[in-house]
């Protein structure tokens, strides 16, 4: 039915999200920097003054966990509520519905890029020099975006029918913060739990980033393959479920 230009539509929807989010704030885009900086300050206080940590490059270590996690949590929850937030569009304009959750994930990418810039800046300030393994960073990031798009499609579709879904997502995010190696290292996990961690794509991403930035090693093939497989699986599953459920969106919104 709708025969417009996807790129133009996507661009305008993302611009809308971005403008609406930042226009009325006096600090604007700086919030994207301020938030991780404040959290970094708090963690640094807790882990260097209360607990003592011997992790080298502490700031880079913690940002490697926080930046992907923040993106994941924000994009997942924004994606989940995206169909309801845009109900007036869904009910009145015959745009392809898939574009709505995908837009909400992609508009969080702008936020993400700012935080990645901060992470790389902190890395260089703490004495890590840019090197060739850094070319793996965009690869793992793109895989994460694909993974989150799949989650967003799935949960956005389900949330139209079962409105409690968003609260499930919010609680899951809180739990995940502790179950993903953000404030601790993969090597601190007792061996019997490690296998479970390996299947968590978010944990895999954080692990890959620490390998790249802290050890200057490219992520292992097994890890990359797992990450790619889970991302593609998540996307195709999300897409299929969304496709299956979208015919009745109009009736339930």
């Amino acid at each position: 039915m709708w025969r417009g230009e996807y790129r133009f539509l996507l661009k305008n929807l993302i611009l809308k999200d971005f403008r609406v989010r930042y226009r009325n704030m006096s600090l604007g885009v700086f919030w994207s920097l301020l938030n991780p900086l404040i959290m970094l300050g708090v963690y640094t206080f807790v882990f260097t003054r209360i607990f003592t940590t011997s992790t080298p490059h502490w700031a880079v270590f913690i940002l490697c966990g926080m930046v992907p996690f923040n993106f994941f949590a924000l994009a997942w929850s924004a994606g989940t509520t995206s169909m309801i937030d845009n109900a007036s569009l869904i009910k009145r304009v015959p745009v392809p519905r898939e574009i709505v959750p995908i837009t909400s994930v992609l508009s969080n990418c702008l936020h993400l890029l700012i935080q990645i810039a901060l992470l790389l800046l902190v890395a260089m300030l703490s004495g890590i020099t840019a090197n060739l393994t850094w070319i793996w960073l965009p690869v793992v990031w793109i895989l994460e975006v694909i993974f989150v798009c799949g989650l967003a499609l799935f949960f956005a579709a389900v949330n139209v029918y079962v409105r409690d879904t968003r609260y499930v997502v919010e609680s899951a995010t809180l739990v995940l913060f502790w179950l993903v190696p953000i404030i601790y290292d993969f090597s601190m996990i007792p061996p019997q739990y490690r296998d479970i961690y390996q299947y968590n794509p978010l944990a895999a991403l954080i692990l890959a980033m620490r390998e790249i930035l802290l050890s200057a090693r490219p992520p292992s093939h097994v890890l990359l393959e797992k990450l790619a497989a889970v991302s593609l699986l998540s996307f195709s599953l999300g897409w299929m479920v969304f496709h299956r459920l979208k015919n009745r969106f109009y009736d339930y919104l």
Binding site: G4, E5, F8, N12, L15, K16, V20
Partner: peptide, 27 residues
């Protein structure tokens, strides 16, 4: 419905572009 897809915080110009994209126009 008039203005579905219009956002109060966007300017008239930005709303025109957004709405045109929604209606299926090219840039």
């Amino acid at each position: 419905e008039l203005g579905s897809g219009f956002h109060p915080d966007l300017t008239g110009r930005e709303n025109i572009f957004l709405n045109a994209a929604l209606l299926g126009f090219t840039e």
